[in-house]
Design a protein around this nucleic acid. Structure first.
Lengths: 335, 335
DNA sequence: CAATTTGGATCAAACGATTGACCGGCGCGG
DNA sequence: CCGCGCCGGTCAATCGTTTGATCCAAATTG
């Protein structure tokens, strides 16, 4: 059944009404006065012909694309997978599709070229740092955009998670287990999330009446985590527990601990931010703080919808957050 | 600089030519005869005004959406992450965007509703099984589609990888190490990939003059892998090596081996299909067969481009494939 | 009973780009 | 010196919807 293409006009012809009537029925326009039987005729014709509105034509006329964009640095990172899921669900609920692109820096600007005027109703920017050129391009194109899970100086368009609270949860767990010397394996100092997690760590330690433990920064990679763990171990008074800003770093840190012959959690407890499936497969399974990442994606799209290009958005998402206790944390050794 | 919206007409007015000329310059239409200086005027006006063609209007007129779709079951699965990367790159090279949706079964059909006529030029379906309803809907909508990495009975529209060869590579590696009793931890018997990997295993064993070892099927999850590994260990003459159809199952299998007190690789070698970053973080790092997943995504989009709704596609992708040797495989014990 | 409202639609102008058809002038071959 | 082709463009229809303006007849109001 090669239905060549069914348009409003076909339906109108079959139902013996004007195209305008069909359009108004389809969008159930409240200003339309229509006899019930006419409406039935139209509805029947639509079903009979299998009519489905042409989104492109509609977009052209209404100047709404019914499409949102989401840029992430890397599909392979499970953190973004969760964000995507949420964003996609929210978009679908609005009758929109989500196009997710992975690109950073200059790639982003190039990608934007594909998304010419009229193609997209709003853009979510997750992770990554470089936005030189992109932001002015977005402003020029008058497309609303929001940063997800990061802030940038002088940009009031973001929704982030409460990383500070996450850090408090993690540190609180370690303190509760009896740890006193708690190190922090931080994220890259330039990263906004890293700064907030560090702030939370510091605040939690202060509140517990403990001095900051040794601190080492690493990029969010296993290799970085391994190196930073090395420097933490070399500290004069080595910690009995470490709060790691990120699971990827934690993987490297655990490897380094294994090499050093330290048993987890008997000799060293470790807890990290972001609960990924992966965490439960590690040896030992890693205690983590579960963040509302899906919610973040959902919220991002919701805010984008109806946002004017000039509106500002500044939100710290207070979604459900939980400590997932696994085998990588335990009370400190009795020494 | 709120550039309200720049259209062809604006450019035409500024360059003092007809809109048609601008359009032809933009698309550099070979049938256009134009004086170089006029072209320069047009180009200058375009740059001056920052004109960018409206994709929606263009799509309406040309009936090409410059957009491809890709449906996957789950963003969290890194296998799909690689496929997406390739597909996205190929789309971008064609000047198109890729919209990736995660949905299976009925969700797919619902998602398709968002992608009404005129919105999409072609669809890639990766993984998952259920396609009741979807395929007829696609055919009715006359949108070309291809299955990625799986076949379905009576559907000649797929591009798959050479899973058989991958299995041979893995088994060959084990045979080369001296193993004689090699088990196969297979995928779900309904899955096309599982069948092909099993076929490759069987063929490789036969060619090596070895009898099939014990075989257990599992779904592609850690829990399934653990259970199946249990049944393999219970075999009368337990294997010294196992070829696992999938990394997720392999994770469970390794856990099970650890529980059973078997040392990897001293007492049991293990090799799995698909090289994911994750594999190198496991303890011990897992030997895998690297498949050209990115290439698969790329090829899918390339084939989709220009495909007629009725054309058929049947391709086994012979991309680069490699055994990545890590610490989970070694010669069998001397017993 | 004339004037006004209202129910039930219809008309037609957009939206922004593409593209086949057309056109005026000039050079040139016959 | 007439007709043809070519150069350098222009004209206008079209893609499928949306939506403000309009319109006709019947009903209501003063």
């Amino acid at each position: 059944m090669r239905t060549a293409r069914v348009t409003l006009a076909d339906v109108a012809a079959m139902a013996k009404v004007d195209r305008a009537v069909v359009s108004r029925v389809v969008n159930d326009d409240p200003t339309l006065n229509i006899r019930p039987e006419t409406r039935q005729r139209v509805l029947a014709a639509i079903k009979e012909l299998g009519y489905r509105p042409n989104v492109t034509a509609r977009s052209l006329r209404t100047a709404r694309a019914h499409m949102f964009g989401l840029f992430i640095p890397d599909f392979a990172n499970p953190v973004y997978a969760e964000i995507i899921k949420g964003a996609e669900a929210a978009a679908a609920a609005l009758g929109c599709v989500l196009v997710t692109g992975s690109a950073t820096g200059a790639g982003l600007v190039g990608y934007m070229d594909l998304l010419g005027p009229g193609r997209i109703d709003g853009l979510l920017l997750a992770g990554s740092g470089e936005d030189t050129g992109l932001i002015e391009q977005l402003d020029r194109a008058a497309v609303p955009w929001i940063m997800l899970n990061r802030r940038s100086p002088a940009v009031e368009r973001y929704v982030i998670l409460d990383d500070e609270r996450a850090a408090r949860l993690a540190v609180g767990h370690l303190v509760g287990l009896g740890h006193r010397r708690i190190a922090h394996l931080a994220g890259p100092s330039g990263a906004d999330t890293a700064q907030r997690r560090f702030a939370g760590y510091s605040a939690a330690m202060r509140e517990a009446g403990l001095p900051d433990g040794p601190i080492a920064a690493a990029d969010y990679t296993p290799a970085g985590g391994a190196a930073a763990m090395g420097s933490l171990l070399a500290a004069p008074d080595p910690p009995t527990a470490v709060f790691v800003a990120n699971v990827a770093s934690a993987i490297g840190a655990m490897e380094r601990l294994r090499e050093a012959g330290l048993e987890i959690p008997r000799q060293m407890s470790i807890v990290a931010v972001h609960d990924l499936d992966l965490a439960s497969y590690l040896a030992p399974p890693l205690t983590t703080v579960r963040m509302p990442l899906e919610e973040l994606g959902r919220r991002g799209v919701s805010l984008l919808n109806g946002l004017k290009p000039d509106d500002s958005v500044e939100e710290i998402l207070a979604g459900p957050m939980a400590l997932i206790t696994r085998a990588s944390t335990a009370p400190p050794p009795h020494d």
